[in-house]
Design a protein around this nucleic acid. Structure first.
Length: 416
RNA sequence: CAGGGUGUAGCUUAGUUGGUAAAGCGCCGGGCUGGGGGUCCGGAGACCGGAGGUUCAAGUCCUCUCACCCUGACCA
């Protein structure tokens, strides 16, 4: 991608109505645009990050055996009435609308009901179980107060996976497996060392649900963290009994702000029962399918990663989710410099290295500042100096010094 | 939803006791520059969130309204 052709621009100043670090940096870098309170457009560079995050999640869900599908945004009230979740008094975040004929519809705030109904025709035998179904979809929640940039919005992307099992034992195995899978996801997204399994209230079906909380000042939750053990308890279940059950000692707990980036919980037959999602067991008896739910918010993750890794110069993206691996800064308009930069751009692109090529006639400072603000992992400079030396200059976003490398070594470093 | 705050150019802001809007960034044209947002000259760009009202006169005062931000509550 050539910057001269990119329609977004960076800004020196943050918008006055955004206080959160993630929104300030993402807007300054041209990654997002605020449409309304709690509603953000993802611009080309921001969309790349979002898609890359989704891809990491998708890979992990697929390798766990998840089957991707896509449910609808428009929701049929009938199925929500079945579980008593249509009433605004029961679920107060609904966005509701109407058909021309006057009948009501909702915009999906979550998707247990439609998924269970959609699956019903396909599930009838113990041989059909277990399985995992997931989607990455836009959710709509009419929050009373949107805040913290993309971290708490009214329209957001969510990956929700649902497990369907024959028995509690089978469900528990899947559930445990997903704790590991989630840890792997957050590690791959570059926030693994600050993201902790957190015990939270489990509702009626289990003692706990599990949250994945990333330590982050901009987060909305308060958790009590035992860093040594790598686990935490949410404020809501922070009592002596729970601590004893988990083998935690109060004096080892650190109270920290955190952002919930994932949440998994046991649903038992809460949804399968009202919809009659049953299977015939080997003994010929009808049994309720047992469900679990596993969520991750990719759009919130964009914000959390920006909050956590961003520095005074701007965003910092891990290589696997960055909008590009390389920011190629061409300094100067001399023929040989342009030729050298063009050739390197084409060569790297052919090799599958994603490059943002700054081919503008801008001063070095402006290009460096943009490279830093956008948080591109590597900055490669092509200038009269590098042409004369026959090498290229490379610097990592977070490193202090740059180094001169031959094209061969440069490629080796970037293709790795 | 309660409390508090803010709306002036694409962005960040200034605007005195009411007298018909100013600057920086960005943008357009040009000069000098050329490795951390450089500099100089010239230019385009705002009916001051919206609607009423007071007044000879409203960005400024009053009323209503909308939007946005913050704190809290809420987050199935």
């Amino acid at each position: 991608m050539r910057i001269s052709e990119l329609f977004t621009k960076t800004r020196k100043e943050a918008p006055a109505d955004e206080v959160s670090k993630n929104a300030q940096l993402l807007i300054r870098a041209g990654f997002i645009h605020k449409e309304m309170a709690g509603v953000y457009t993802f611009l080309p560079l921001g969309l790349r990050v979002l898609e890359n995050i989704c891809q990491v999640i998708r890979e992990e869900m697929n390798s766990a055996g998840g089957q991707e599908l896509k449910l609808t945004t428009l929701q049929d009230p009938e199925i929500w009435q079945k579980t008593d979740r249509w009433d605004d008094k029961k679920v107060d975040v609904w966005f509701k609308t109407k058909l021309k004929n006057g009948s009501e519809l909702g915009l999906g705030p979550t998707h247990e009901e439609p998924l269970v109904r959609a699956l019903k025709p396909f599930i009838s035998s113990y041989k059909d179980l277990p399985f995992l179904a997931y989607q990455i979809q836009t959710k709509f929640r009419n929050e009373t107060r949107a805040k913290s940039g993309v971290m708490r919005t009214r329209e957001f992307l969510m990956k929700d996976l649902y497990s369907f099992a024959k028995s509690e034992k089978e469900h528990d195995e899947i559930y445990k497996k997903f704790i590991d899978i989630y840890n792997k996801v957050f590690k791959r997204l570059g926030i693994g060392d600050q993201t902790f399994l957190t015990f939270a209230s489990g509702g009626m079906f289990s003692q706990f649900s599990h949250e994945f909380q990333t330590v982050c000042e901009a987060g909305e939750d308060t958790i009590y963290l035992d860093r040594k053990k790598g686990i935490a308890v949410n404020e809501e279940v922070n009592n002596d009994q729970v601590l004893a059950d988990l083998g935690l000692k109060r004096e080892n707990l650190e109270m920290v702000r955190a952002a919930e980036v994932g949440n998994i919980f046991t649903l038992k037959d809460k949804f399968s029962s009202p919809f009659g999602l049953t299977y015939v067991a080997e003994n010929g008896e009808n049994q309720n399918v047992l469900m679990g739910c596993y969520g991750i918010g990719p759009s919130r993750l964009v914000g959390v990663i920006a909050e956590l890794l961003g520095d005074e110069k701007g965003l910092v993206w891990p290589a696997n989710i960055a909008p590009a691996l390389v920011y190629l800064a061409r300094l100067g308009e001399e023929k040989q410099v342009v030729k050298s930069a063009n050739e390197l751009y084409e060569h790297l692109t052919e090799l599958g290295v994603s490059v943002i090529y700054d081919d503008r006639d801008e001063r070095a400072g402006a290009k460096f500042a943009d490279a830093d603000l956008m948080g591109i992992p590597f900055r490669v400079v092509v200038s009269q100096k590098t042409v004369d030396s026959g090498n290229f200059e490379i610097k990592s976003r977070t490193g202090k010094d740059s180094q001169l490398l031959s094209e061969k070594d440069l490629i080796k470093k970037l293709v790795a």
